[in-house]
């Protein structure tokens, strides 16, 4: 069935978005708006690919991508948390740096393909029992391990944020850092840990593109997906569970235009490409009109925290 094949592909196209979105949710939930997602993804993409190529080991490749992303997160955290630099400008600079680093490191990787055993590691396989669920089974449970890992991360992050003490503290840091500080939470540690972990997830999102989705090295492999991830964070109202649906929805939009051409439905892919951003703006306006507390951006988003300035 064409529709199942399409939805299966939408999940694949949405997976890099999902990882980056989860990473950015973690970052924004502690009150830091990192617009460097695109740069972090590129750093992860090139590190993952390079290490995958050298070691022929998928685990090492993923680890390398996560570390590269976390390293970008560390730069961001150091500047915006410790040195209280402007988050927007730092994020944009980080994108420039990340694009440069990946372009530079990727120069010698141009046209190389992923080694066979790494490619094999990321082959799709069916999960017994779950694959037999009508329709959904073939869409969701006939995928590769990276995508399953994406489901896992979203669920874990959802539980962490809403059901654990740490998650509560983390959200408090983003909403009201002064109150969190007063109640004895170490703001800086919370910010650093989540920004680094968020960066690692962005790095993994990038690695999915270079290792699995393409799977060969091409310059600027992310092609603006980092910015879509920033949009998705809003679209999913900072909620990891909604981020899953949003990511696959946006992933579907990413590929739908070219597929519709086959059915002689001519809607330009470029118009379809506008839709994620338009939808995000509509969501953004709606949450600001309704002012429902749980869907709002974290109160402290974008502001550096300085204890003596209340």
């Amino acid at each position: 069935m064409a529709i199942i094949v399409f939805l299966n592909a939408a999940v694949q196209a949405g997976t890099p978005l999902l990882f980056a979105t989860l990473g950015e949710i973690m970052t924004e939930k502690v009150g830091n708006l990192n617009l460097g997602v695109e740069g972090l993804m590129l750093m992860g993409a090139v590190a993952g690919f390079e290490i995958g190529l050298v070691t022929s080991n998928a685990y090492m490749a993923l680890l390398g991508a996560a570390i590269a992303g976390a390293f970008g997160g560390l730069i961001f955290a150091f500047l915006t948390v410790s040195l209280k630099a402007n988050q927007v400008v730092t994020g944009l600079s980080l994108t420039i740096l990340g694009t440069g680093l990946s372009g530079f490191a990727g120069k010698s990787l141009m046209g190389k393909v992923v080694p066979e055993n790494v490619g094999h590691f990321f082959k799709a396989f069916e999960i017994p029992l779950l694959k037999d669920i009508p329709i959904l089974g073939q869409i969701l449970f006939n995928q590769n391990i990276f995508i399953y890992f994406g489901y896992f991360m979203a669920v874990v992050l959802g539980i962490y944020m809403y059901k654990t003490r740490w998650g509560l503290n983390m959200r408090m840091v983003g909403e009201n850092p002064s109150a969190a500080d007063a109640s004895g939470i170490n703001i800086n540690i919370y910010k650093y840990v989540h920004i680094l972990a968020g960066g690692a997830l962005c790095g993994l999102g990038g690695a999915y593109l270079s290792l699995v989705y393409v799977p060969a090295w091409q310059e600027n492999v992310t092609a603006g997906r980092g910015w879509i991830a920033v949009a998705l964070v809003i679209f999913s109202t900072w909620n990891p569970n909604k981020a899953v649906l949003g990511a696959y929805f946006f992933g579907g939009l990413d590929i739908i235009g070219f597929r519709l051409q086959k059915f002689d439905i001519s809607i330009s892919q470029y118009i379809v490409d506008m839709f994620p951003y338009l939808a995000t703006i509509i969501v953004l306006i709606m949450i600001s009109m309704r002012k429902s507390r749980e869907n709002m951006p974290p109160e402290g988003l974008g502001n550096p925290y300085f204890r003596e300035e209340r």
């Binding site: 980080l94 420039i96 740096l97 990340g98 694009t99 440069g100 680093l101 372009g103 530079f104 120069k107």
Partner: peptide, 8 residues
């Protein structure tokens, strides 16, 4: 890209 790195 090296110039980009310098800029960043």
């Amino acid at each position: 890209s090296a110039a980009q790195i310098l800029q960043g």
